[in-house]
Design a protein around this nucleic acid. Structure first.
Lengths: 328, 328
DNA sequence: TATCTTTACTAATACGTTTTAGTAGAAATA
DNA sequence: TATTTCTACTAAAACGTATTAGTAAAGATA
């Protein structure tokens, strides 16, 4: 069905080398006559030759594929992010081998092994916890690695991310500017660095402004079962609250559910979320938030990774993308 | 860095064949002594040998990769769907090469060419318009193809989908059962077969029950700009409406925006959506819907595709997945 | 002891490409 | 005319694996 270079060569009575050179636009440098070049080109077009990219990759060592590893391709952050990445890479003639780890290090292991076997030319990774060894392994294999969204402080990699502390600070100032004098923070009981940074910035803000800090840490593991009740009871114990700052969008949604009365009316103070959500623009009251700009994030990741692939691995750098404050 | 079979063979003073056979668990059938087998196995484990899957694929003709082509991996249907597919395939030791066409046939062309070059063993495709030729090309290349969600009536392929007509009918009956005697349909001005089927079923329902049919067709191309106003004016011209049936979830969301008054109160009749959405469970009033069961859908797609890969291409069949009616 | 079997391997070829060194013949130089 | 240079190619090796036919040595059979 699909013809090989060998067959084409035989049918044209020339050598495989000739055909290969012509196809790869090296006819000139290899002094193939214009005449023969045309003949090959025409024939190749006529039979609709498609190179076997496995063989090609084996010979050249280039797979034209990069790996994208996220926690869950189905979620509202990684899905659209992946789309941007794909678009950007398509323009550079690269394609994406993606995988979701679902937070399971064993999955991550399998995925990375598979990608290394497939000889991806670089990997874009949003690490979940306990992926230090995995990252080291990638680097040991001399495969360029760019980490985004989160990182492991223990392992030195290129790292593209937003400034969590600064963004959190902006959020606090905004709440203050719209009249909140006693707003609390609802976060998650987890030591993900980005969550810690968001909390720290809130604490610093309190210190500076003299506002009393009130923090609720929800359990990461049994959030769905315990979260709603926890928020409800905490809020009712802190009746002087006049605003809430959630450190991520799913917490904010959970908060919404918690604070709605049976009748359907809502609480009567502003909510603010870190990370946007389709919901926030539709609900009433609308919810302001810090928005991570997906496109710049994706652009930077791709640019840095391609540079590494092109010029060889360089010493790790950080790239900080600034966030938007969406007022609603 | 990464050792090859050749190097391992040299270091052990045996032939490449021996190493290869042992690695592939063919030691017994090739009468390699238990002793040597152990020696090879141990050494291979010790140096952490990882096969080069490009070479492997070239030799065996199997890439252990399947292609998944959707319109937009970032959306709330395809994203989670892709996750299921990935999970299911992981168990069978397959991986996914995915791509989003964004509805552009040229993109689709590039993607398919790339996948064929990569020697994917099968393709899972949710076709957008004008992809008939593309599908034929895949089949000509003897690559198993399973089409889902939508299909092109012009080209015969395995086709996994829900029963749009029947589901739409269920929706109508449900609205009737909760007291709606004059509900309208809001759909999109496009000839996608699934949309047509949903509309037809509504019309048939009207005919059978004697209900007056009222249909608003929104413009596919300039939906965002024109949609909200169009819904608003149409509803106000049809004051006797007592329910709305949206043929897809983004239309329903658009409807929500349209029908909300400035004060934040809602219209006072039931809304029903085809396709579920995270929102519908959270909003007040909650919105009932027809839900496409992603997991069974993904399972069937994967099962059918793997069977084709295993046993060779068979004559096209249809697989209908039944939907759920979610009452809220 | 000559022949057949079995055991335990290995040599060789193939997969489809890229790439480099080589070469036959023509043309130019001395 | 003998040597060098150039032209237009091609042969061969390499990438890393899988697979099949083959083989030497040992053991079994007659």
């Amino acid at each position: 069905m699909a013809k090989s270079i060998k067959e084409i060569a035989q049918e044209l009575n020339v050598s495989k080398s000739t055909v290969s050179l012509v196809i790869n636009h090296k006819a000139q440098q290899a002094r193939i006559s214009k005449d023969l070049e045309r003949r090959v080109l025409d024939y190749v077009a006529k039979v609709g030759y498609k190179p076997n990219s496995l063989a090609k990759s084996l010979a050249t060592g280039r797979s034209n594929t990069i790996g994208l590893i996220v926690e869950n391709i189905g979620d509202s952050f990684f899905g659209p992010f992946a789309l941007y990445v794909e678009e950007l890479l398509r323009k550079k003639n690269y394609h994406v081998l993606y995988s979701s780890t679902l937070g399971d290090p064993q999955n991550a292991q399998d995925i990375i092994d598979f990608m290394l076997e497939k000889k991806v030319e670089g990997i874009l990774l949003a690490p979940t916890v306990n992926l230090d060894e995995h990252q080291r392994k990638i680097l040991e294999n001399k495969v360029p690695l760019v980490v985004f969204d989160r990182n492991s402080p223990e392992v030195a990699t290129h790292y593209v991310h937003i400034d969590n502390g600064d963004s959190s600070r902006k959020a606090c100032s905004y709440l203050q500017s719209i009249g909140c004098e006693n707003f609390g923070l609802i976060t998650i009981d987890s030591d993900q660095p980005q969550m810690l940074a968001r909390k720290e910035a809130y604490l610093k803000f309190c210190e500076e402004t003299g506002m009393k800090a009130r923090i609720l840490q929800l359990p990461y593991r049994r959030l769905r079962q315990k979260g709603i009740a926890a928020v409800r009871s905490w809020v009712s114990k802190n009746m002087d609250l006049d605003g809430l700052f959630f450190t991520t969008n799913y917490l904010c949604i959970l908060g919404l559910k918690s604070l709605r009365t049976e009748g359907g009316e809502h609480f009567n103070f502003p909510l603010f979320s870190f990370d946007d959500h389709e919901l926030f623009d539709i609900l009433n009251p609308k919810i302001s938030c810090i928005q991570q700009p997906l496109e710049p994030l994706a652009k930077t990741c791709v640019k840095v990774l391609l540079k590494e692939i092109d010029r060889g691995i360089t010493s790790p750098k950080e790239y900080v993308i600034s966030t938007n404050l969406i007022k609603r």
